[in-house]
């Protein structure tokens, strides 16, 4: 049996995984706003620890 019988389904499965994760990210709204997140990383996310 040729190796292609394993390689081809594996390739298709990989593509399927990519498509599924893409659809998931789209429906989670990750592509709704392409501008702000890029700017948000300029902000410091560290805060002063709460006073004791």
């Amino acid at each position: 049996m040729s190796v292609i019988y394993i390689a081809l389904p594996v390739a298709i499965a990989l593509a399927l995984a990519a498509v599924i994760s893409f659809v998931w990210t789209v429906s989670r709204g990750q592509y709704d706003d392409l501008e702000t997140p890029a700017l948000r990383m300029l902000e410091d996310d560290e805060k002063r620890p709460p006073p004791k």
Binding site: A11, A18, V19, F22, V26, G29
Partner: peptide, 21 residues
């Protein structure tokens, strides 16, 4: 608009994956 935009993106993603393979 948001939902329509998402639909477009999903269609693009699937069509792109099929075309590539």
């Amino acid at each position: 608009f948001k939902l329509e935009n998402r639909k477009h993106l999903i269609r693009l993603g699937i069509a792109g994956a099929c075309a590539g393979n």
